[in-house]
């Protein structure tokens, strides 16, 4: 093969693979649909009073000690999610930070915990299926016995939720498993999540994804200033209501569509990006990535064909060499 052919062949191969990928992009699978009986939570930041009851209850349910600040252990001082914290209340302040949920000189709370994506990135990228989406409930749970600790899930999660315990030589990934992991199983027992149960204002509301989405949309349809009876506990059978004036909500439910949607949805009166929500489109990165992978590797067809061709070429090109040419 001369140089001219060499370039012709390389160019041909490159264009062919690019075309395959472009075609793959078009054919890529769509976002996953919500699990048929998806359970989730609705966190309404305007209802949150920052009492951290959810943080404390979460620690209790999961048997995790509070994160101290120096010697101070009277409350939980976790700065963010970590191997010691599955749920944390954070604050956004602007200017003087005086008025709750105000855009200027205001502050707003934000709950950080697993969003239980409808099309979870962490599940898509985990090489050993240590992270799985439950086929019925849609809960994203973790199996430490399968996990190899590669931490790809942490890179694949748009919300940086899975946390590896770096300080432990035998560390594992820690994330919210909707209080339904082995040994806890609150959802299976008909209970709600610990954080929703503890929440005094109904800021964290438990329920099915459908019912929660309906509740969220009901709130968005209200006029600011109107009084609304906010349910507490489980949206399908609230243990009580409390009345409150409706704030000026942002006009979208975070998690309805973002990157394929989430089972844990958020409402807020200030823009979501200020609460640390990532810049996401409607398409899940998992679906794009899997599209590319399945184009290249479905049934290993492409690799096997390539291997066949390469074997033939190599055999042809080495057969002429009598001695030592083959390595």
């Amino acid at each position: 093969m001369d140089r001219r052919n060499f370039f012709k062949t390389s160019l041909g191969a490159t264009v062919a693979s690019a075309a395959a990928l472009a075609a793959g992009g078009v054919q890529a699978r769509p976002n996953l649909d919500p699990a048929p009986e998806a359970v989730g939570m609705l966190y309404d930041a305007t209802l949150c009073v920052g009492c951290k009851a959810c943080v404390s209850k979460c620690k209790e349910v999961n048997g995790m000690p509070p994160v101290p600040m120096g010697q101070d252990t009277h409350a939980d001082f976790a700065l963010d999610l970590s191997a010691k914290t599955r749920n944390v209340i954070k604050i956004h302040t602007e200017g003087k930070g005086a008025v709750k949920d105000a855009a200027a000189d205001g502050f707003a709370f934000e709950k950080r915990s697993c969003m239980h994506c409808v099309d979870p990135g962490c599940v898509s990228v985990c090489p050993v299926s240590a992270l799985t989406r439950h086929p019925m409930t849609g809960i994203v749970s973790y199996n430490k016995d399968a996990c190899i600790g590669c931490r790809t899930c942490m890179t694949g999660c748009p919300y940086n939720v899975p946390q590896y315990d770096y300080d432990n030589p035998f560390g594992q990934i820690v994330k919210c498993e909707m209080c339904n992991q082995k040994g806890v199983e609150r959802i299976d027992k008909g209970l709600m999540t610990g954080c929703a149960e503890a929440c005094p204002t109904g800021a964290t509301l438990f329920g099915s994804r459908g019912a929660l989405l309906a509740e969220a949309k009901r709130r968005l349809a209200l006029k600011p200033g109107e009084t609304y009876a906010y349910p507490r506990g489980d949206v399908r059978k609230p243990d009580s209501f409390h009345e409150k004036a409706v704030p000026g909500y942002q006009k979208t439910v975070w998690g309805e569509k973002e990157a394929g949607g989430t089972n844990v949805m958020h409402l807020s009166a200030i823009p979501y990006d200020k609460l640390g929500m990532p810049p996401l489109g409607e398409r899940s990165y998992a679906s794009i990535s899997e599209g590319v992978q399945s184009t290249l590797y479905s049934y290993l067809a492409l690799p096997v064909v390539a291997l066949g061709g390469l074997t033939w070429l190599v055999k042809r090109n080495t057969s002429g060499e009598k001695e030592g040419g083959a390595e």
Binding site: S129, K144, I148, A286
Partner: peptide
């Protein structure tokens, strides 16, 4: 992080072919 589980990558029932 969990190297003692590393061989799971070779076990077909653990494999996630999308990954």
């Amino acid at each position: 992080g969990r190297y003692w589980n590393g061989y799971n990558i070779f076990l077909p029932w653990h494999m996630n072919t999308h990954a």
